[in-house]
Design a protein around this nucleic acid. Sequence first.
DNA 1: TAGTGGTCTAGACCACGTG
DNA 2: ACGTGGTCTAGACCACTAC
Lengths: 248, 248
Amino acid sequence: MIDTSSAETGTQLPLYKEVKRLLTMSLAEGEWQPGVALPSETRLGERFRVSIGTVRKAIDELVAERILVRHQGRGTYVASHNARRTLFHFFHIVPASGGKEPPQTELLSFERAKAGANDAARLNIAPGAPVFRIRNLLRLADRPVVLDEITLPVERFRGLSEKMFRERDSTIYQLYQERYSINVVRSAERLSATLADRPSAKLLQVAAGTPLLRINRTALTYHNVPVELRTSLVNTADHEYFSDLGKN
Amino acid sequence: MIDTSSAETGTQLPLYKEVKRLLTMSLAEGEWQPGVALPSETRLGERFRVSIGTVRKAIDELVAERILVRHQGRGTYVASHNARRTLFHFFHIVPASGGKEPPQTELLSFERAKAGANDAARLNIAPGAPVFRIRNLLRLADRPVVLDEITLPVERFRGLSEKMFRERDSTIYQLYQERYSINVVRSAERLSATLADRPSAKLLQVAAGTPLLRINRTALTYHNVPVELRTSLVNTADHEYFSDLGKN
DNA sequence: TAGTGGTCTAGACCACGTG
DNA sequence: ACGTGGTCTAGACCACTAC
C-alpha cells in the first residue's frame, strides 16, 4: 500500500489519484515511450500494491485526458502523435461544408530570436531567452488557408534545425515527440478577429484588409507544462474553426 | 437484470450503457427536474436490478457530460442552469487580460419569422416553419461587446413572449428550463472572422469595417437534439474567445 | 444517528487480439 | 490457448451532510 497521507498538509489523497500521479511521472520521464504498451493492469497493480480496480480508475482518467489509449485484448498504450490524432485533436479548421482533411505544410522561415515579455511569460522562460521562430503556410485542397507562427524555447529544443522541419515526413508534434521526447497532450486556444496585413494577405492570396481569424495556442505537455506557442491566421472565407466542448 | 440483447442487430450493449440510456430518457421526460436529487444509487440499483457499481458507472458518464452533478453526503442532482454554470460552460468570451465576468443583456428585438433552409436543417425542422428571432446586446464592464441573434423553433417554445425575455431575472437557458422544461446540456460552435456592417458597428460602437468574431452556435438538449441557434458577433478588441479542449 | 456519495478491494466472467 | 482489457458483482469502510 502506498502512503497517501501528507505530513505537511494533513490532506488525504485518494489512492487512485496517487497512482495516476505516479503513472504521469513515469510518462513524463519517458519510462514508457509513445506507441508502446504499458505493463498490464495486473502488473501495475502489483507494482503499486493496489487492486486492479484502483489502477483502472487511474488509467480511466488518463484515457479521458487522451494521454493513454486502451485496446481491448492488446494492452494500454501511450498516445502517439500520428497524423490522425493531430488532425482530430489539435487541428480545428474545417471546411464550411464538407469533412475535415489534413493540411499540406510549406515552411516559410526558420529563425532564432529572443523571447519577448509576453511569450516568455506564456512559455514560463526568462524574458530575452532564445527561441526558435518558425513560420508555415498551410494549404487545404491546394488553397492557402492558414498562416502559422510557431515559437519554441531553444532550451527544450536544442539542435533543432530548419532541415528537420523541412524534411520531416510526419506531423510537427510527432517531430517533437521523436526527436525531443516532448509529448504534447493538450492545448489551450484564444481566438480573436483581425485584418490581414500586406504580407499575410499576399501569402493567403486575399486582399489586404480581409478579416482573418487569429488563434493563439499554447501547447502543453504532462503536468500542464507549456512547450510551444503558435499564432495562426486563418482565412475563414471557406473554412471555420470548430469547437465542440462537452463532447470529445 | 435488464435485457441488453437486441434481436434485430444481435449487438450486445453493456449493462451500464443501458442504465445510462434509461436515466437519460427519464431526464428527457422530466421525471427528475433540474436542481432536485435523483434517487440514491442504492435505490437506482434496485430499480434497474443492477449492482450499485453499474449504476455508478452510468452516472459517472452523465457527470462527465455535465448532465448530473454529485454532492457527497447529499445526493446526485440534475444539473441546473444557474448564472454560474452558464457563464462557465456556455459563455466563452473573456477579457484579453483579467477574469471572466457575467454579461449584461439588453433586448433589442423580438420577432416571428420563417426558418430558412439553413436554419431549418440545423434545427431539424421543416423549411419555412415558424421561428422566434431574438436579438440581444451584451455588455461587459458597461461596454457593448457581443451582438446575439437567437433563433428558436416556435413549435418547442409555444407562447414565448417578448415580455418573458425582457423581464427575466435569470439566464436565457434558465428561462428555457423553467418555462419549457428544455434543458440545454451541450453546444457546438463554429467560428469565423467577418467585418462589421453599419447597423452592427453602431450597436457595438465601433467603426464599420472593424473585424469581428462570428460564432455560430447550436445548443443541444438530451440525445443531442438541437433546440436553439445563436449567431454572435464579438468585438475582440479587448476580449477573446477561450477554447480549452481536453480539460473541462 | 442515519443516509448519501467516494474509495478500495477481490473475484468471476466476457470479448478481443495474438500466436 | 493465453493474456489483455471490459463488464459486473458484492461488500467493507470512509467522508460528508442533514437532522
